[in-house]
């Protein structure tokens, strides 16, 4: 069945205290894609992601490869927005990455040597192995983001959800992360990325979900990343300039 190769979101809605956060969002994404979730501030990007993960009361249905979220939780890696983390927390880089292994360890067992070596491997993949003994608050923004990407890698997940991973990080880190994400996509991992900034959208993503409370358009980047749809989503809060073949997006 085609279901096993795709993620289907069907008429997903979330209401807060009678106010609509997102309404009737429907789209389908196939396995192995890098999906950008874009839209202006308050469009409900994080809400959509949380509703897909079953963390928010919602109406509608979400199927991951034909299964409900609860059946595949161990396969879901989540990278939080950087400002949601307490950077003074007494954990070192290696401790954070090891958390990616927690769901694979039964409660009565200790963390094994394999778990530790998987965590170390993940740290090497993001080029942070030299920092494994640092407290996480001592790192730069980009390094912190790489550590959380390493945690997601250590989880050996099939689905990745990243909430604004490129905000406030250096170019070097951004390059490393983007390369890793493309590599993961080649390994048939599906990646959802909330993205705020409209630049580089075409370079980073295979598919886009463009929303502003309701779905504006979803599908292949080339078909969605068009001035008409962007204007509709941003309603004047971004200027879209069409210059021959090149499109320039200004703001928000």
């Amino acid at each position: 069945m085609a279901d096993e190769r795709s993620i289907k979101v069907d008429r997903l809605s979330v209401h807060y205290h009678g106010q609509t956060a997102i309404r009737d969002i429907t789209f389908t994404v196939s396995k192995g894609m890098i999906v950008g979730v874009i839209g202006p501030n308050g469009a409900g990007k994080s809400t959509l992601m949380k509703a897909m993960l079953g963390l928010e009361k919602s109406k509608g249905e979400v199927l991951f490869f034909g299964k409900k979220i609860n059946a595949i939780r161990k396969q879901v890696a989540y990278v939080p927005q950087r400002n949601s983390i307490d950077w003074d927390f007494p954990v070192r880089v290696e401790d954070v990455v090891l958390m990616g292994r927690f769901m694979h360890i039964p409660w009565y067992k200790k963390t094994s040597r394999e778990d530790r070596s998987r965590a170390r491997e993940a740290l090497e993949q993001v080029g942070m192995q030299d920092y494994s003994n640092r407290q996480i608050g001592e790192l730069s923004g980009g390094q912190q983001q790489r550590v959380f990407i390493a945690r997601a890698l250590a989880q050996d997940a099939d689905l990745f959800f990243l909430d604004e991973p490129f905000v406030g990080i250096d170019i070097e880190s951004e390059k490393i992360i983007v390369e890793l994400l493309h590599q993961l996509s080649k390994e048939e991992k599906t990646i959802f990325i909330i993205h705020h900034d409209l630049s580089k959208v075409e370079k980073y993503f295979d598919e886009l979900v463009l929303l502003n409370q309701t779905l504006i358009q979803a599908g292949n980047v080339k078909e969605v990343y068009k001035p008409s749809f962007l204007k509709e989503a941003y309603r004047g809060s971004a200027a879209v300039i069409n210059e021959g073949n090149e499109m320039v997006v200004v703001g928000p």
């Binding site: 993960l53 963390l55 989540y78 949601s84 958390m99 927690f102 409660w107």
Partner: peptide, 21 residues
């Protein structure tokens, strides 16, 4: 001791803790 890992994870990163069930 028994719930050390769930306690640590949910204290450090609540959303990830929820996401992993």
């Amino acid at each position: 001791v028994i719930f050390y890992r769930p306690l640590l994870l949910s204290t450090f990163d609540e959303t990830m803790a929820k996401a992993t069930g």
